[in-house]
Design a protein around this nucleic acid. Structure first.
Length: 466
RNA sequence: GGUGCCAUCGCCAAGUGGUAAGGCCGCAGCCUGCAAAGCUGCUAUCCCCAGUUCAAAUCUGGGUGGCACCUCCA
């Protein structure tokens, strides 16, 4: 297994801290709104990573947090005159539902900020004790970036205070402009948590460090965890700050490998909630099968950016259709668990920093070869057995082809239409039987007018939603 | 202004020193009552310039263009 480490900026052979085990932590969403395609991509990338690691025999512990303490959540709660928890529960449930729709497995651990306050307090206390944090007169607690000689080594930035554009109103008592809040004191009664440092709210960067210590960290290794992942925009300042907190509060560094996924863009521009150009996952799911979205968002390399457009999405759909047509051809046959040459090659491609393009080209070649073999006369017992093992492996490691192929091709068609189509097909079969091809062709036109494709096979006539 | 990433066929996209994968589209053919599906065949010398090398899309230098981060962000 090889992983591109975005801190060392090179592809490195993956060596776990503990033989046979992997600890993986990914920064999850702040749940104040619906997830867009960018959130989906991030979740998909690390879902794929965990699957590939497992296929390589590693025992993986995968944690992805949910940030449920945040100013935007509070703002929304106040605006809608709702409880914070009402907001966060709603969007958490929606997030889970949408993740399931695109085949993202639930992480092993899903810590929430509200459930990790003790760990955060412990971390702050340590940092104050170690002289890496200080409290201002109004109660805020800041991390002292100057006290950490390794600060900025993660993102490799150059500290240049003179030219640093300070765009956020910050406390006059901050020792350095770069110092970031560990604890924000809040005087009013809006939303606060009781802590040893007074009433307030924790800083955003703190929760990840705290959750990692609480749920995943090795206590006796040079790194807390093996792999830390997240969107490319998190490298600075979020991950830089997380790394600083962990480094200064504990005896280990945060992560051995850092992975950052590229963005989903719209019209060449980053998709983000604040830019207001989000394409929400829930809307995409109304138009497309979740697996098509999964395929599309995973079809380009995880580190490169993806310019969202429906044309390419349609191409992904066509490509996935081919897999499902092969599945249809072998419908009802049992999956095998045996290893195949194809499976090994596929895993090898994916184990090279998740080279999805190579993996997909291997799948296309396998599909074409299998179809060709099945086209020749004979029973093809061996071919079928091998193919079912291949399909099973693709499902397991990539999450493609997990549905019933007939249902897959009926996405978005209501029952009344389905019934009508059945009747039309029946009538057409009768016309064909009677060799009344004119009527048969007229009926086909009727069938096609429902936006479906019709195909005659040795097993009967079927339609597929285009 | 600082830092970093990227530029491969009409479109999407691998490959990072050894002579350009794959998909979509298009064209031709096989199959089919006709179709669809499937299969077969055909289609690029890698943004520009200079250099290193027996050999470069792949390394170095210089351009040009695009994007991201430096502020909440996946």
């Amino acid at each position: 297994m090889y992983i591109y480490d975005s801190v060392q900026k090179t592809k490195r052979k993956f060596e776990p801290l503990v033989e046979g085990k992997v600890t993986l932590y990914v920064c999850g969403p702040t749940i104040y709104d619906d997830a867009h395609l960018g959130h989906a991509k991030s979740a998909l990338v690390f879902d794929l990573l965990s699957r590939v690691l497992r296929a390589n025999g590693y025992e993986v512990t995968y944690a992805r947090n949910i940030t449920d303490i945040d100013d935007k959540i509070i703002k929304k709660a106040i605006k809608q005159k709702k409880d914070i928890k009402t907001i966060t529960d709603f969007y958490t449930a929606a997030f889970h539902k949408e993740m399931q729709a695109i085949g993202v497995k639930h992480p092993d651990i899903e810590p929430k900020a509200t459930e990790s306050l003790d760990a955060m307090y412990a971390l702050i206390t340590k940092l104050i004790e170690n002289g890496h944090a200080y409290q201002t007169s109004n109660g805020d607690i800041y991390f002292d970036t100057k006290s950490d000689s390794k600060y900025l080594t993660l993102s490799r930035r150059v500290q240049n205070e003179d030219e640093r554009q300070e765009r956020v109103e910050s406390s006059k008592e901050k020792r350095n402009p770069a110092d970031f809040a560990l604890w924000k004191s809040v005087k009013d009664d809006s939303v606060t948590f009781k802590s040893p440092f007074g009433k307030g709210r924790p800083g955003w960067h703190l929760e990840c460090s705290a959750m990692i210590e609480k749920h995943l960290a090795y206590k006796d290794k040079p790194y807390a965890i093996d792999i830390h992942g997240g969107g490319a925009d998190l490298l600075f300042p979020h991950h830089e700050n997380e790394a600083a907190q962990t480094r200064c509060a504990t005896k280990h560094k945060l992560a051995n490998y850092w992975m950052h996924n590229g963005f989903v863009n719209i019209n060449g521009e980053k998709m983000s909630k604040s830019l207001g150009n989000s394409f929400f996952l829930k809307n995409a799911l109304r138009e497309y099968d979740g697996e098509v979205l999964r395929f599309y968002l995973l079809s380009s390399h995880y580190r490169s950016s993806l310019n969202f457009n429906t044309k390419d999405l349609e191409v992904s759909k066509k490509r996935l259709n081919k897999l499902y047509r092969l599945k249809k051809r072998l419908f009802g046959l049992p999956y095998g668990e045996e290893k195949t040459a194809f499976g090994e090659k596929l895993l090898e491609a994916l184990s090279d920093d998740l080279n999805i393009s190579s993996a997909l080209s291997l799948i296309d070649a396998m599909i074409a070869e299998t179809n060709e073999r099945l086209d020749t006369p004979g029973k093809h017992k061996e071919v079928k057995k091998e193919t079912m093992a291949n399909l099973g492996f693709i499902e397991k490691v990539l999450g493609f082809g997990v549905k019933n192929p007939y249902e897959y091709f009926q996405f978005g068609v209501d029952d009344a239409t389905k019934a009508k189509l059945s009747k039309l097909i029946e009538a057409r079969n009768e016309a064909k039987k009677a060799k009344d091809f004119q009527r048969s062709d007229t009926l086909r036109e009727d069938i096609l007018s429902y936006g479906v494709e019709l195909m005659d096979t040795p097993h009967g006539s079927f339609w597929e939603k285009v």
